[in-house]
Design a protein around this nucleic acid. Structure first.
Length: 329
DNA sequence: TTCCTGGCGG
DNA sequence: CCGCCAGGAA
């Protein structure tokens, strides 16, 4: 089949490779294996059983982690998702994808990402863009604050780092909009650094495999297992595999993340301040400038709530006021 | 630590 | 309806 260069039949690879070795191959990856699905499913089941046996006999140690790595690697070989930000080495494109993917599902990012990259083709272009332009391109992704932070991060990267994305998570964390998880994932996906981090897919996957029957699993319990499982020679592919397996798992089981100590439900969106906030900003982007009255009308909101939300939008720099008229700077 | 933040795919 | 490759302010 086409696009399978670099692929070695699993039968050849697994028995011959010691557990401590790495299993990932360079791109291009296997996206599907036609005609061998049954073999693939059987092999996957066999690998899961080997993992479970190791976990039963020796607990969550090096052996179980190595077996677990084989499970997700095997899955990834056969079911890797194709994404634009996985097919580039451009640090800018990967950085933008990481910010977009915070709290936003892949399918939604897929649709917005190409246009954004076309409109702002590198850090310099994004840094030089008007805030308004960036927010317009961001509409539909949600969490508009991230768009402002991304633009500011681009400015810092251009001004302080010569347009290069830092590879030290501690340095990345000082960029606006980049917290612990995103700093580590940027280091992993942009620079292929073997950072250890936890986000929702990592959490789901490790809770599902290593904490069966447990409740209130803490991230601190998961972290050492990630460190032991991570393929230090191929961090990027390792985390891609984790993301893809985690997404698949979600469709087949009740969300294991509900057994995480850090699991919380979001407040309802309908009728909330943030719904109003989104509407008001959107109205302002569509109309250019609006008066207080116009803004309240477009947001479909009473004066009390509208004024409160507007005050926060002003404080956060989304909106500027000039002689009673509001606009996006 | 807790609360707030968007919009929509599945 | 659930929850998304969380960050920052309070």
């Amino acid at each position: 089949m086409p696009g399978t260069k670099g692929y070695h039949p699993l039968q050849d690879l697994f028995p011959a490779t010691p557990l401590t070795s790495t299993f990932f191959v360079p791109l291009p990856l296997i996206l599907s294996v036609s005609g061998s699905e049954t073999t693939s499913v059987d092999e996957h089941a066999r690998l899961v059983r080997a993992f479970e046996a190791a976990l039963r006999e020796e607990g969550p140690g090096v052996e179980a982690c190595a077996r677990f790595r084989q499970v997700i690697c095997h899955y990834f070989r056969h079911h890797a998702r194709q994404m634009p930000w996985r097919e580039t080495d451009d640090p800018y494109r990967i950085f933008v994808s990481e910010v977009m993917l915070q709290q936003t599902q892949v399918e939604r990012v897929r649709k917005k990402y190409p246009e954004f990259i076309e409109r702002f083709s590198d850090f310099a272009a994004l840094a030089a863009a008007e805030q308004r332009e960036v927010l317009e391109a961001w509409q539909g992704l949600g969490y508009n604050r991230r768009a402002l932070a991304l633009r500011q991060a681009a400015q810092t990267i251009v001004r302080d780092f010569g347009g290069k994305v830092p590879d030290d998570p501690a340095v990345l964390e000082r960029l606006p909009g980049i917290g612990k998880a995103t700093a580590a994932s940027v280091a992993a996906f942009v620079h292929n650094r073997p950072t250890v981090f936890i986000e929702t897919n990592v959490r789901r996957l490790f809770i599902h495999f290593f904490f069966r029957g447990r409740e209130e699993v803490r991230d601190a319990e998961i972290l050492p297992l990630v460190a032991m499982t991570l393929d230090p020679a191929h961090p990027r592919e390792f985390y891609w595999a984790v993301m893809d397996y985690g997404t698949m798992l979600k469709k087949r089981y009740p969300n294991p993340n509900r057994r995480s100590a850090s699991y919380t439900r979001q407040a309802p969106f309908e009728g909330s301040d943030r719904q109003v906030r989104g509407r008001m900003l959107k109205a302002l982007l569509e109309h250019g400038t609006l008066s207080t009255e116009g803004l309240l009308a477009k947001g479909g909101v009473d004066e009390k709530r509208g004024t409160r939300v507007l005050k926060k939008l002003l404080a956060e720099g989304f909106v500027a006021e000039e002689e009673g008229e509001y606009r996006v700077p």
